[in-house]
Amino acid sequence: MPTSRLDGGGLRLAYDRRVVADGLTVAVPDRSFTVIIGPNACGKSTLLRALSRLLKPAAGSVLLDGEDIHRRPARVVARTLGLLPQSPITPDGIGVADLVARGRYPHQGLLRQWSRDDERIVAESMAATGVADLADRRVDELSGGQRQRVWLAMALAQQTPLLLLDEPTTYLDIAHQIEVLDLCARLHEEQGRTLVAVLHDLNHAARYATHLIAMRGGQVVAAGEPRQIVTADLVEEVFGLPCRVIADPETGTPLVVPAARARAGTVTR
């Protein structure tokens, strides 16, 4: 069993009285690229919200380095665990470099507003995500893909060993989706960070994840390495979708191909 700095046990997750998940237990293996998948309203984003302390569990607790994440000072947590929310707000007229620089907030203080480290790390983060050329542009002028990379740069500038991403590819076209996921994979491999992402596309998840968590109805149905757990039976169980699973011709990872619609003349069940 690999070690885990971030895990949750006996979680009951609820918005007001509406319980989304109960008795949920998850662990994020260190140095993994963990992807959470599942059908709409299965509680995957809710789980990510709980792991990133945006949602306080009604029961159970999320542990960061073995300590309840809600008991630790917010800034201390923010130096270990970074977050890219689903729909962050871009302030009017903010510049790219300025937005990325905000990622340094948990490392700054009233008398330590902009150290040389801050400057270096912001430059490095922009270089890593390929937005260094855009540094002087305004964020609201950028394309969707560029904007998402700027936000990723902000999350990187936070310099946390753990980074949580809530549906980082939503609203992007297919090319930009792959661009962002490639970037995530590179950050994971080259910088050794632990990434946790919620993704909609099962094939993307199977290709990029090193650890997959499949959820349905607020429960974890399966967790493990995609090659081991992604089977036609699992997809049918989680999504209710009849399919075949073949090897991705590019990467050899599992590729889910939905079964063809039953036509007149073919045998129907």
Binding site: V76, Q86, P88, R102, P106
Partner: peptide, 20 residues
């Protein structure tokens, strides 16, 4: 002031940056 500027990014992002 600095924390307030972080909340301009939305509550979620601000929490992620360590603002209570």
């Amino acid at each position: 002031g600095p924390a307030l500027r972080m909340t301009e990014l939305g509550d979620d992002a601000a929490t992620g940056l360590g603002v209570n």
